[in-house]
Amino acid sequence: MQFIKQLSVFVENKSGRLSDILTTVGNADIDISALSIADTTDFGIVRMIVNNPEQAASVLRENGFVVKVTDVIALAVADIPGGLAKEVEKLKNAGISIEYMYAFIGKSDKGALVIVRVEDPEKAIEVLKGESVTLVSPEEVYRL
C-alpha cells in the first residue's frame, strides 16, 4: 500500500494567513479532506490531506509558501465508544509510537478515519498487516 501524502505549510502567526492558504488551495479547485494545525506563539504548521497533493504543493509554492510533503498512514476506526482507543492500543502493542494524529471530519465506508504520523511509516504498514487494523488507501482518502 502507498502512503498518504500530507502537506505541511509554514505560517507566521499573523491574521489572515490561514485564510490565504485555504483560498490558494480552493482557487486551484483542490478539495481538503482533513486539516490540523500545530502552533507555537509565533508560527504554526498547517497539515492537510487533499485530493491532489502534488498540485496543491505546487500552487502553494507558487504563491510563496514553504511546503513539505510527508508520508502518513490512515486508519479506519469503528465509530463507536472506545473505537479509537482500541486501534491506538493495537499500535502500542505493535511497538509503533505515534508522533501525532488527527481525525477526519468525514467518514469512509469502513468507518471513521484518523491520520497517524509515525516515525517509520513503511515499518508501521508492515507490522500492522499482521494486526486486525484497517489501513485506508490513498485513493480512498483523497476521494473524501
Binding site: 505541511s8 509554514f10 502552533d39 507555537t40 504548521i45 497539515r47 514553504v66 504520523r117
Partner: peptide, 15 residues
C-alpha cells in the same frame, strides 16, 4: 526566512 529544508511537519524540530 523559512526555507523548505528547514521545514518539517513536526513543529518541535522547527522550533
Amino acid at each position: 526566512e523559512m526555507s523548505e529544508s528547514m521545514l518539517s511537519d513536526d513543529i518541535k524540530s522547527v522550533a
